[in-house]
Amino acid sequence: MLKPTTLANPSILLVDDDQILLHVTKRILQHDGYKVTTATNGKEALDKIRNTQFDLVIVDVMMPHINGLEVLSQLKQQQNTRSTPVIVLTGVSHSISEDVLKIGASACFKKPFEADTLREAVRQQLAK
């Protein structure tokens, strides 16, 4: 069952295995008025995506078992999530960002990043 979301309060799924970063980014986005759900690994993320329709997914590349690339590629392969924009975070952008954009990510950020850059990107993606 897909829960409906309102445009006034866009929902974001945030996936990262670094607890601190997850916590902070969540607080920042909540502060900006988004509804934020978190997951600490790829498997949890895919489970959550199956049950809920998100307006935006932010995912870290390096995670155990199912990594960000796989989450991204699965999202882009499924009919109902294909259009959901995905922002990818990575610690190793130089070799990966190409792949990431090829699979269909909307944006790719290298850590460390500026909080405002992420906020701006989130705003842009949701405005589309």
Partner: peptide, 10 residues
């Protein structure tokens, strides 16, 4: 740890 993840004003 925070500083490793955030640059700029933060």
């Amino acid at each position: 740890h925070y500083r490793k993840n955030f640059v700029g004003d933060l």
